[in-house]
Simulated scan of single mutants.
Amino acid sequence: MTLNFLLRPFLFFLIGLFSVAYSDTFYNKTNQNVALDGFDTVEYFNQKTATKGFARYQVTYLKAVWYFSTQENKNIFEADPEKFIPQFGGHCANGLSDGHLVRANPEIFRVIDGRLYLFFSWWGKAQWKYDQQAQIALAESNWGEFSSNLD
């Protein structure tokens, strides 16, 4: 095994992390700039469900308006928003691991190692049931390329 082979997954991770962490825009939003079609991003972690939020509990972050189902979830998000932001600007994680940039369906998701990944379809989500770290590395590598051309 060469050093290049061993470092490649780590380098892909760093590229993806850098591009996600320093993006100032969230892309999966409606024409009215509502993130995730109004789904409460905190509920993916708390209840493990896609739950619609309400306009009365909203926060503007990353050039998008985020809705929450409760005042408590709004407060939790405001305390640490990066913890709850979906990876890859809200694009389909499976599409990215396959080399395609596709807007995700916020009702189809996985939380893996404390990070939220969205998918376009149930089939895409199923593809990420096994070998998740390899899928993540591929998606992060491709996101590094795609994200630099989005702004």
Results as ranks from 00 to 15, higher is better:
residue 84 F to K: 03
residue 73 N to R: 02
residue 61 Y to Q: 00
residue 69 S to V: 08
residue 34 V to F: 10
residue 76 I to K: 12
residue 70 T to N: 02
residue 24 D to T: 15
residue 76 I to P: 00
residue 46 N to V: 15
residue 72 E to G: 09
residue 66 W to P: 04
residue 34 V to C: 04
residue 46 N to P: 02
residue 45 F to I: 06
residue 43 E to P: 10
residue 51 T to R: 07
residue 53 G to H: 09
residue 75 N to E: 15
residue 44 Y to Q: 03
residue 58 Q to H: 04
residue 42 V to M: 09
residue 52 K to M: 13
residue 53 G to T: 10
residue 56 R to T: 12
residue 45 F to W: 00
residue 32 Q to T: 13
residue 35 A to H: 07
residue 24 D to Y: 02
residue 24 D to H: 13
residue 40 D to I: 08
residue 57 Y to V: 07
residue 33 N to A: 14
residue 76 I to F: 06
residue 68 F to N: 02
residue 39 F to E: 01
residue 77 F to G: 01
residue 31 N to C: 12
residue 57 Y to E: 07
residue 38 G to V: 10
residue 54 F to Y: 13
residue 39 F to P: 06
residue 42 V to W: 04
residue 38 G to M: 05
residue 26 F to T: 06
residue 63 K to W: 03
residue 27 Y to S: 04
residue 69 S to W: 03
residue 72 E to L: 14
residue 68 F to T: 05
residue 51 T to S: 10
residue 25 T to M: 12
residue 58 Q to T: 11
residue 78 E to R: 08
residue 64 A to I: 05
residue 62 L to H: 03
residue 24 D to S: 12
residue 84 F to L: 03
residue 33 N to T: 05
residue 47 Q to L: 11
residue 65 V to L: 06
residue 59 V to D: 13
residue 35 A to W: 02
residue 43 E to M: 15
residue 75 N to K: 13
residue 83 K to S: 05
residue 67 Y to H: 13
residue 62 L to Y: 11
residue 25 T to P: 01
residue 28 N to D: 07
residue 75 N to C: 02
residue 45 F to M: 02
residue 42 V to C: 00
residue 85 I to R: 05
residue 29 K to Y: 05
residue 82 E to Q: 14
residue 52 K to R: 12
residue 24 D to N: 15
residue 67 Y to I: 05
residue 56 R to C: 08
residue 61 Y to W: 11
residue 24 D to L: 13
residue 62 L to W: 03
residue 52 K to V: 02
residue 32 Q to W: 01
residue 63 K to F: 09
residue 70 T to P: 03
residue 24 D to G: 05
residue 68 F to P: 01
residue 41 T to M: 09
residue 24 D to I: 06
residue 65 V to G: 04
residue 50 A to F: 10
residue 47 Q to N: 15
residue 43 E to K: 12
residue 60 T to A: 11
residue 71 Q to W: 00
residue 24 D to C: 09
residue 42 V to K: 02
residue 36 L to E: 01
residue 39 F to L: 14
residue 60 T to W: 00
residue 70 T to S: 15
residue 82 E to W: 06
residue 45 F to N: 03
residue 41 T to S: 14
residue 55 A to K: 15
residue 37 D to T: 10
residue 79 A to S: 14
residue 55 A to N: 12
residue 81 P to L: 08
residue 64 A to L: 06
residue 49 T to H: 09
residue 71 Q to P: 09
residue 54 F to S: 11
residue 72 E to S: 12
residue 51 T to G: 00
residue 67 Y to C: 08
residue 42 V to D: 11
residue 43 E to Q: 15
residue 52 K to H: 10
residue 43 E to I: 09
residue 78 E to F: 00
residue 79 A to F: 10
residue 67 Y to F: 15
residue 26 F to E: 08
residue 33 N to W: 07
residue 53 G to E: 04
residue 43 E to W: 04
residue 65 V to N: 14
residue 59 V to P: 01
residue 29 K to H: 08
residue 62 L to F: 12
residue 27 Y to G: 01
residue 35 A to P: 03
residue 68 F to G: 08
residue 32 Q to V: 11
residue 60 T to Q: 13
